[in-house]
C-alpha cells in the first residue's frame, strides 16, 4: 500500500497535464468520428480552436487556426481574411503562448514523448538560434506561398500540404486507419510519403529534444510568440523581488532568453524554482498561480 502511494505521488499528473488532456479531449470531442471514420460537420466547425488541431481529425469539433489562416490568405484575392485574423488576434492578445503550454494537443503529445527515458539534448545557444526557423516557416509556407497562389485563384495551404505533422498524425492516420476509408488509399502518393517521413522524424526528435516541433518548426507558436509582450495571460516576473540569479532560466526547458519572452510557453516550471518567489502566472493583475501554489513536480521534489 505504501508503495502504491509512493508510486502515485511520483507519477500523478500535474494540473497542467490535466488541463492539456482536458483541452485535447474538448477539441476532439467528436469521439463517434473515430468509430465511424468520418469527420464532424456540425456548426462549431466554423470556429477555430486555439491550439494546433487538424480539422480533418475525425474527432475535431473546431477548425485548425493555422489551416484556416492559410485558406483565408488563399481566398484573400476575393475576400479579405478579417475573420481568421481577428480570431488569431483575439487568441494572441488574451492567451498568447499559454495556448502552446496548456491547450495545444500537439504540445501534449510532444511532452509525453519526451517522457521516454533516453538521453536528452540540453537547450543551448544553438537551439535558441534554431528556434528562429519557425518564423521562416511561418513567413514562407503559411503566408507567402498561399498569398501568391491566391492571386491565381488557387488555394494552396503550403504548410498543411508539405510539412504539417499534426495533419498526418490526426487527419491521415486517424481517418485512413478506419476500414470505411479504404478507397482513399488509392489517392495517396508522394505527398503522403513525404509527410509521413516528416512525422516519423518529428516524433523521434521529440523523444530526445523537448518539444522539438514546437521550438523549431511550429508556425502557430511563432505567430502567438509575437504577442508575448502584450498577451493578457502569462508568466510575469515581479521586478522588485527578482535578484537576477537565473534559476528560472536554468529550470526552463524552452529556449527562453528571459521569463515571458516569445519562446516562453508559460508552463510555470519556473514559478516553484524562484528563490525570491518573484514569478507568478497572471491574467492581467490577477494571480492565477503564484509561488505558494507551485507546480506539483516542484512540490514533490522539495518534499
Amino acid at each position: 500500500m505504501v508503495n502504491v502511494k509512493a508510486w502515485w505521488q511520483a507519477h500523478r499528473p500535474t494540473t497542467r497535464r490535466l488541463v492539456q488532456l482536458y483541452a485535447a479531449l474538448l477539441q476532439n470531442a467528436h469521439l463517434k468520428g473515430f468509430a465511424e471514420g468520418k469527420i464532424y460537420t456540425g456548426p462549431t466547425k466554423a470556429v477555430c480552436v486555439p491550439g494546433l488541431n487538424c480539422y480533418s481529425c475525425p474527432g475535431a469539433v473546431g477548425a485548425c487556426p493555422l489551416g484556416a489562416l492559410q485558406n483565408a490568405i488563399a481566398a484573400s484575392a476575393n475576400r479579405p481574411a478579417f475573420y481568421v485574423v481577428g480570431l488569431l488576434l483575439l487568441f494572441g492578445l488574451t492567451l498568447g503562448r499559454v495556448i502552446c503550454g496548456w491547450l495545444c494537443p500537439v504540445g501534449m503529445i510532444q511532452e509525453l514523448l519526451h517522457k521516454v527515458p533516453t538521453p536528452k539534448l540540453k537547450k543551448n545557444r544553438y537551439t535558441r538560434a534554431l528556434s528562429w526557423l519557425k518564423y521562416v516557416i511561418l513567413a514562407v509556407f503559411a503566408v507567402i506561398i498561399p498569398f501568391w497562389y491566391s492571386l491565381q485563384q488557387y488555394p494552396l495551404p503550403a504548410f498543411c500540404k508539405y510539412i504539417c505533422p499534426a495533419g498526418t498524425l490526426e487527419g491521415a492516420v486517424g481517418l485512413l486507419s478506419h476500414p470505411a476509408n479504404a478507397e482513399k488509399f488509392s489517392m495517396l502518393g508522394i505527398l503522403f510519403t513525404r509527410k509521413l517521413l516528416i512525422l516519423a522524424g518529428v516524433l523521434a526528435a521529440c523523444v530526445f529534444i523537448y518539444r522539438a516541433f514546437c521550438r523549431f518548426l511550429c508556425p502557430l507558436g511563432a505567430l502567438y510568440g509575437l504577442f508575448a509582450r502584450i498577451a493578457l495571460l502569462g508568466v510575469r516576473v515581479d521586478k522588485s523581488q527578482c535578484s537576477g540569479c537565473g534559476a528560472c532560466l536554468r529550470a526552463c526547458p524552452m529556449d527562453v532568453g528571459r521569463v515571458g519572452d516569445h519562446e516562453c510557453i508559460h508552463c510555470g516550471e519556473c514559478i516553484g524554482v524562484c528563490p525570491e518567489k518573484a514569478i507568478s502566472l497572471k491574467a492581467g493583475k490577477i494571480v492565477l498561480k503564484g509561488p505558494d501554489c507551485a507546480p506539483a513536480v516542484q512540490r514533490r521534489k522539495t518534499q
Binding site: 477555430c48 487538424c54 480539422y55 489551416g67 498526418t168 491521415a172
Partner: peptide, 16 residues
C-alpha cells in the same frame, strides 16, 4: 469559408 473548409476532408492535411 472556414466552416466549408473544416467540414470537408482536407486533402492537403492528409497528403492525398
Amino acid at each position: 469559408d472556414v466552416f466549408v473548409k473544416a467540414i470537408n476532408i482536407c486533402t492537403e492535411c492528409i497528403g492525398l
